[in-house]
Design a protein around this nucleic acid. Structure first.
Lengths: 264, 264
DNA sequence: TATAAACTCCGTATGTTGTAAAGTATTTTC
DNA sequence: GAAAATACTTTACAACATACGGAGTTTATA
């Protein structure tokens, strides 16, 4: 009955020394060959470990990403991985920053703010599509790697000089990032469910529908039923997740635009 | 090199019989005492199991939620839990639907569409605050329990009859839900990081800042630095996550409103 | 009333997981 | 040469979900 204190309380707070090492790893060794290390040469590099892990996560999902599997890919014993990376959590940080590096950055004169924000949002959508584990990995605190930082800067720069205060710039970029995150997450959940159950949305509904009908009173959900009927009748293009994303994004930007012009 | 098919491919697709049972569990026994069961009375109920699990997840996070721990809370052996619930995944479904039931539904004449959508969004925000594990649990396909369904209906009804087509109603509710999801997720990640590291955002930055400064060239991130300075100078209220959420929500609704009036 | 069926609950066992500890082999510095 | 630092390995542990088979308990049927 006694609520025992959460194990992960204060004890394992990584010390500042460990934090410094983590950051250094994220930013890569500043001078890798300046001081020739003493022992045997490493057979691989941190880069190689990160890439192997990403490949594995891409192919089989985050659940399949285990230290053992990654080690196997590199023909290493499981524990040898720990000479490259101190823990699985930190490996995830590295993976995340690496992948964020794939995002193409808009250049300075690349259209107005709206075009730039749109481009960044679409890029994020694409990246998440390519690496579905990205959003699944609970990114507690952003790893602050070089790529993450660069993209944060790009996002802020896109809304700079259009009449927003510093705090408003922050709020607006957060708004867009939040929408994209949510939308991607929704699309990924749906896609994964489809893959995992081996059924398309349509098949699934046509199976669940009758089951549900036996349990509930459809008249209590008139609107849901009506929309379901519209889909069933094929009046709706359906399932075009990307255009749904785009629709929402444009509404969000409309809202921001209205706010900006309302301020002037 | 050969991409082996994901283990969880088609083999363990739950049969339709199992699906029917799952749904029935979600909706509760339609007539629990109509047919007096044969064996010994269960010491607990599915409800009690779900509540214990929710309490555990609330108190110690999703990572701490194990069948063993839940069983322990009920003074049951681990395996006995499986007489109430067939798997951990299904327990999560039940938890989710239960928690969604806490959301207060706007009544029919409860203000215009904007007021209703706002109310629902705020409710979702609050619920997620109260049960931080909600968003962490990758809800593959929504469980389609009574509460989830009722809230979906409420969300659709809020935007009914304001000049949107069926598919647009769907898109708009998805847009709002996606924004809320993303915003909540961001706020929760930040809050959890704060709790886990035992440092406030401010402390964290004042530690990371100097470390970063030694590794990077700040002049490459002028905008980020500028905003960081503004925060440091205290010109920004800072950290008021709820008002940031509210700001974004109103922008989103502005965007929807603009769309609606543009259609008429 | 006797028996069979249905049911709850449990002990044991299997195969994963992250990673701690300690040992071995290899390379560079003194 | 000796000593120190490093890469790698083996072994081991605790926690996890859950499959399997069995023990005890209650009701339905004969």
């Amino acid at each position: 009955m006694s609520a025992q204190p959460p194990d992960r309380g204060d004890s394992d707070a990584p010390g500042p020394e460990s934090r410094a090492r983590s950051l250094a790893r994220l930013w890569g060794a500043p001078d890798p060959d300046a001081a020739p290390r003493r022992g045997p040469k490493p057979r691989h590099s941190v880069e190689a470990v990160v890439q192997a892990a990403i490949a594995l996560a891409d192919a089989e999902g985050l659940d399949a990403l285990s230290m053992r599997r990654v080690a196997e890919m590199l023909r290493l014993s499981p524990m040898s991985l720990y000479t490259y990376v101190p823990s699985k959590a930190e490996l995830l940080d590295l993976m995340l920053d690496h992948v964020v590096g794939e995002i193409a950055e808009p250049k300075a004169g690349d259209g107005d703010w709206r075009a730039q924000v749109t481009q960044l949002a679409r890029q994020r959508w694409l990246i998440a599509q390519r690496h579905p584990w990205l959003l699944q990995a609970g990114m507690r605190r952003p790893p602050l790697g070089p790529n993450v930082l660069a993209k944060a800067e790009a996002a802020l720069r896109a809304v700079d000089g259009i009449g927003l205060s510093e705090s408003e710039m922050d709020q607006v970029t957060a708004l867009v990032a939040n929408y994209v995150r949510g939308a991607v997450r929704g699309a990924l959940d749906a896609a994964e469910a489809e893959r995992e159950s081996g059924m398309t949305d349509e098949e699934w509904w046509s199976q669940q529908g009758p089951l549900l009908a036996g349990l509930i009173d459809p008249s209590r959900y008139p609107t849901t039923v009506r929309i379901g009927e519209a889909y069933k009748a094929g009046q709706i293009p359906r399932g075009d997740r990307e255009s749904n994303f785009e629709f929402g994004l444009q509404r969000v930007l409309d809202g921001v635009e209205a706010y900006i012009s309302g301020r002037r």
